[in-house]
């Protein structure tokens, strides 16, 4: 669908071994700007390992990573963040005792000078900027002065996403974003994913909930036992075919056996 454009991220022949175990075996994939890619597979298929290679937690044993057309070496999570690759893990990495805008600015607080001398936190600025990014993403949270611990799971997810977007994420990796949420909240997060995609942010989404992935993803990549066993455009496939790819039942023509 976007074949003529340059991919934002391209990984080629990534291999990651843990001792004798090959967790990821020569996997290649691309993600285009504004595209939502669903990364699917059973437990132990290598999804998380692949994600951790891209986000700098693990270093690949073989293979190349290209970002915005240039080959890059991602040796730490900070490297990935500097490139514009943000990962939202299931634990969300929020400080629950701090309020919404403090979390969005966590570690990168905006300061102002008191009496032109003493640097202090600029609450007003952080609050306004946070409000702007939340508005842009259509996120509703009663007050940004509320502590994270008073928010629902979906609201927390939104805060974590807003934080990455505020700091200019170009590629967002989401690990099971809807796993712990109620139905209404799940829908809100999925809508948020669509909004982000429309604004040009590329997203890799890992989820076991096929229904969710089919709603938002443009393209699906299926892994099994560390290898890529299939890649489909969402509108050209159906959940049955994907399930058979995931579990390895060979009933569908075109399924590349891994």
């Amino acid at each position: 669908m976007e074949g003529e454009r340059r991919p934002l991220l391209e990984v080629r022949n990534i291999v990651k071994r843990f001792g004798g175990l090959v967790a990821v075996n020569r996997v290649s994939m691309e993600v285009y700007p504004g595209e939502v890619v669903g990364l699917l597979g059973d437990n132990g298929a290598g999804k998380s390992t692949l994600i951790k290679v891209i986000s700098g937690v693990y270093r690949p044993d073989e293979g190349q990573i290209f970002f915005e057309g240039r080959e890059v070496r991602i040796t730490s999570p900070m490297d990935a963040i500097r490139l514009g690759i943000e990962t939202i893990y299931q634990d969300l990495a929020l400080a629950e005792n701090l309020n919404v805008y403090s979390n969005i600015f966590l570690g990168r607080e905006k300061l102002k000078k008191l009496f032109n001398l003493i640097p202090v936190l600029d609450h007003e600025y952080m609050m306004q900027e946070s409000k702007k990014v939340l508005d842009r993403l259509g996120i509703e949270i009663p007050s940004l002065r509320n502590k994270i611990k008073t928010l629902s799971g979906g609201q927390r997810q939104s805060v974590a996403i807003s934080r990455s977007i505020y700091w200019n994420a170009k590629l967002l990796i989401m690990d099971e974003p809807t796993a712990a949420l109620g139905v209404t909240e799940q829908r809100k997060v999925l809508n948020l994913v669509k909004t982000l995609s429309a604004q040009g942010v590329a997203i890799i989404i890992i989820s076991h909930q096929l229904y969710d992935v089919f709603q938002v993803a443009h393209r699906l990549v299926v892994l099994r036992r560390g290898e890529k066993v299939g890649e489909r455009l969402t509108h050209e496939t159906n959940p049955d075919e994907i399930v058979s790819l995931i579990v390895g039942a060979e009933l569908v023509e075109g399924g590349q056996r891994g």
Binding site: A93, A95, N97, L98, G107, P119
Partner: peptide, 18 residues
């Protein structure tokens, strides 16, 4: 009031997030 103090609260709230 300072960033130093804010980071103390952040560490106490979620050391991994910090």
């Amino acid at each position: 009031k300072t960033q130093f103090g804010q980071h103390i609260y952040a560490i106490g709230g979620n050391i991994d997030a910090a």
